[in-house]
């Protein structure tokens, strides 16, 4: 049953990708195909990163409502980049090779995520409410610090970080595509390799220990993967609050299973379908200027409220 549904999702994604590449093309194909191809690759990377990061995080947190975005992971990344511009000045910031700033921001992100969220996840007594509140407060803190810093800096310098602070899908910076693809595929491969361990971790702390796993170490490994995946996707398209929640919930609906060997590809396919399909539909078919991020966050936000309310009642 799952195999058939995964095949159907792949087929739908294939149609969406074809639509994205060929619809509304004016001009020579030799220009359009590489130009759109790079953007498509970036969209696919982002889609897989977000769905995988969310799924991993939910497995470790044993919670279907929390996502890295809700916990403020992407706000953390935006803050790191903003503070770097704030303290270095845009001239210095831009003088450093882009690759160096990118990798530094990534390293800081991984460390900060481990420090901030590691302590939260490693408590033996799980307290979801406290985790959620801490996440929301941390997210608000990161956003406030970011906006404080942006107010203090030169408007010209602000232009440098503006790119990182808003979700956007039609202007994707493809300069770093190679490095990002490498990092992202590495993290995705690592996530795929620990899929069986993730299944066991989802059983809970005591059951995981009984079956010979070390939940503490696993949580740290997963947090590192999540931090890398979120950083890569935020660097490409900016923060998208509810995409992860939306696509992972859909994956649980379309392929209900406890096995990450099914959930990981299923969520990735749904995520890619949402981004590529949504972008094709809005941009090429409907010709709308509404950003896709607005539509996704609107739907995802409604889902978030619905999940919260039904869980509360139970």
């Amino acid at each position: 049953m799952h195999a058939k549904r995964l095949a159907f999702l792949s087929l739908a994604l294939g149609v969406a990708i074809t639509g994205y590449m060929v619809l509304g093309a004016r001009g020579s194909w030799s220009f359009i195909l590489p130009f759109r191809g790079a953007k498509l690759a970036a969209l696919l990377l982002v889609a897989m990163s977000i769905s995988t990061a969310t799924l991993l995080f939910q497995t470790i947190a044993r919670n279907r409502i929390l996502t890295p975005s809700i916990m403020g992971f992407d706000a953390l990344y935006v803050m790191i980049v903003t503070l770097a511009v704030f303290f270095l000045g845009s001239r210095n910031f831009l003088a450093i090779p882009e690759l160096v700033t990118y990798l530094t921001a990534l390293a800081v992100m991984v460390l900060a995520a481990l420090l901030l969220f590691g302590t939260l996840l490693l408590q033996t007594r799980e307290d979801i409410m406290r985790m959620m509140l801490t996440g929301v407060i941390l997210g608000a803190l990161f956003r406030s610090l970011t906006s404080f810093a942006t107010r203090m800096i030169d408007p010209n310098e602000y232009a440098v970080i503006q790119v990182a602070s808003y979700a956007r899908f039609n202007q994707i910076d493809t300069d770093l595509l190679g490095v990002s693809a490498l990092l992202c595929l590495g993290a995705l491969l690592a996530a795929w390799r620990i899929r069986h361990r993730l299944d066991v971790l989802a059983l809970g702390r005591e059951a995981a220990i009984n079956l010979g796993l070390n939940p503490r170490r696993a949580a740290i490994e997963v947090l590192i993967l999540v931090a890398v995946l979120v950083a890569v996707s935020t660097a490409f398209v900016g923060p998208i609050a509810f995409l992860g929640l939306l696509v992972v919930s859909l994956a649980h609906l379309v392929t209900p299973s406890g096995s990450h060997a099914i959930l990981l590809p299923s969520a990735a396919l749904i995520s890619a379908l949402t981004l590529v399909g949504g972008q094709t539909l809005l941009d090429r078919v409907l010709g709308l200027s509404t950003p896709l991020a607005v539509v996704i966050d609107f739907l995802g936000g409604i889902l978030f409220l619905a999940l919260l309310l039904t869980r509360m009642r139970r």
Partner: peptide, 15 residues
């Protein structure tokens, strides 16, 4: 140890 010893906790969490 997991191949030598197993435990059923008092209030097992359940997936």
């Amino acid at each position: 140890l997991a191949q030598r010893l197993s435990i059923l906790p008092q209030v097992p969490e359940i997936a």
